[in-house]
Design a protein around this nucleic acid. Structure first.
Length: 456
RNA sequence: GGCGACGUAGCCAAGUGGUUAAGGCAGGGGUCUGCAAAACCCCGAUCGUGGGUUCGAUUCCCACCGUCGCCUCCA
């Protein structure tokens, strides 16, 4: 398949270097719960993984948790709990969120706090090779020791410094140097090291964890576009300086960011302009969220909106009904293969999920048409379910937990209404239908009997 | 200020140097239905503005306008 590589700024033909695709995706900082922006990113990499597997590649997927860092330490102190406790709480929430949006679990979820020895080893190596230096117990990476520093984000050191946003920093030799290890301050969690008690800087954890779990060269390293600089730039510098192996990553893949219509700024936790994952799920369901996300290209920014989710929700219903409704007959079967071909071709083209979805909707129409014509549709419906699954769609009705338990009562009303209709008491029957519609229950009088389903 | 991305029908959004510019949602008409719904059929785009390259550009180049991202924690 073809995949855009941030490093080359081009779409390239993708294949793993070995027999397994080594894929590392930057995970969340555990200082707060994830929001739909995270969901967007993890859905996209989930779909990338599913497609690679469909294409016959074996994928090893690793995602980290950041559980040492300024924000999480501050939050824990503010809430009067340990960093560990706060992190654990958000890890549990993370797994619930991933399950609810049908994201396949990674094969490993390393945590920074559990990889300290590996981190220390790398820092030692960088010190020994003069790529790093010590200043008051802090260790900094010497950015000027890497002539190609800036190659991922497309910037040179002069313009970085001229940008004036770089903090000169206490003991730094050079303003753009970044911390590998920070000396402990009072009250902070710390670990023993050859340089005294301290904790790792932010970027080094990913270098250590990817090296340990996947090796010196990754096939794919993913994350949001906001991580390109400085995080991923610094990872490259550290990792390549440490191992001497180039490239650290063969394909850098970055997703566009989600934003809110009011602010038109990206959604991010420190701005507080965010929407929790479960809020979207409870209202619209997982399939609607995925159709919303996958309906545009993964590298484009996406604006969160009620209208877009509403539209995606209706679209999900369309696919669900096409896959589920029975009928048809023994006329020649509907052939799903042309649609499968279109689907795969779109996905192969830099993960064009919008094009793949379009193929799915066309297949749905073909199924519906075939059913009207008395043709066999079971194979086509099976294909629709299978291909939907490659996008992580369940084609199941959203749970709607607030109405749980209402089912039997709706059944009762529907049954009573059917008797009214049999008596031709249409006014009453229509009134029941209208009142149920107000409550979010849609009725359909089909030949085999009345169907009902939830609808906003 | 530096680097980068985007601007396609009412809304969301693919895509292509040249036959009819995907798909979803919303809307209008029709078929079906007791009436609806679902489904099916039909209907909508001078592709931000102005130049340029070309036999021909929405697609390539330049300028401008607008929006956004990174340059600081960030998916």
């Amino acid at each position: 398949m073809k995949l855009y590589n941030t490093l080359s700024r081009r779409v390239e033909e993708f294949a793993p270097a070995g027999d397994v695709v080594k894929m590392y995706v930057c995970g969340p900082n555990l200082y707060a719960p994830c929001h739909v922006g995270h969901a967007m990113s993890y859905i996209i990499f989930d779909v990338l993984r599913r497609h690679l597997e469909y294409r016959g590649f074996k994928v090893k997927h690793v995602q980290n948790f950041t559980d040492i860092e300024d924000n999480i330490i501050l939050r824990a102190q503010a809430q009067g709990v340990s960093v560990q406790e706060l992190a654990d709480r958000h890890v549990r929430q993370f797994y619930r969120d991933m399950d609810s949006i049908n994201v396949q679990h990674a094969h490993a979820y390393p945590r920074a706090s559990e990889e300290i020895p590996a981190i220390i080893e790398i820092v030692q190596g960088l010190l020994a090779s003069d790529h790093a230096y010590q200043a008051d117990g802090d260790i900094y990476f010497r950015v000027r020791s890497k002539p190609d520093y800036g190659k991922l984000s497309g910037r040179d050191l002069d313009s970085l410094i001229a940008g004036a946003r770089v903090e000169p920093g206490e003991g730094k030799e050079y303003p753009a140097d970044f911390a590998l290890w920070k000396a402990a301050k009072p009250g902070e969690p710390s670990w023993d090291s050859p340089w005294g008690p301290g904790r790792p800087g932010w970027h080094i954890e990913c270098s250590a964890m990817s090296l340990k779990h996947l090796g010196e060269t990754l096939d794919i390293h993913g994350g949001g576009q906001d991580l390109i600089f400085p995080h991923h730039e610094n990872e490259i510098a550290q990792s390549e300086a440490h191992t001497g192996v180039r490239p650290f990553v063969r394909f850098w893949v970055h997703n566009g960011l989600m934003r809110l219509p009011e602010s038109e700024e990206k959604m991010t936790r420190h701005l507080g302009n965010l929407i929790p994952i479960d809020e979207v799920l409870q209202r619209w369901g997982s399939d609607a969220l995925r159709i919303f996300v996958l309906g545009s290209h993964y590298r484009s920014p996406l604006t969160h909106s009620e209208e877009a989710l509403q539209a995606a929700s209706r679209a999900a219903e369309r696919l669900r009904l096409a896959a589920a409704l029975e009928g048809g007959g023994n006329e020649p079967a509907v052939d799903p293969e042309p649609f499968r071909w279109r689907f795969v071709e779109a996905m192969d083209d830099d993960l064009n999920s919008a094009g793949a979805l379009a193929a799915l909707f066309d297949l749905a129409r073909e199924i519906n048409r075939g059913r009207d014509q008395g043709r066999r549709t079971d194979d086509a419906q099976a294909a629709l379910r299978e291909l939907s699954g490659l996008l992580g769609l369940t084609l199941e009705e959203p749970a709607g937990p607030d109405r749980a338990g209402a089912g039997p009562f709706v059944d009762l009303l529907v049954e009573l209404r059917d008797r009214l209709r049999a008596e031709k008491l249409y006014e009453l029957a229509d009134d029941i239908r209208a009142r149920l519609a107000d409550l979010g229950i849609a009725l359909e009088d089909a030949e085999g009997g009345t169907r009902w389903r939830r609808r906003d």
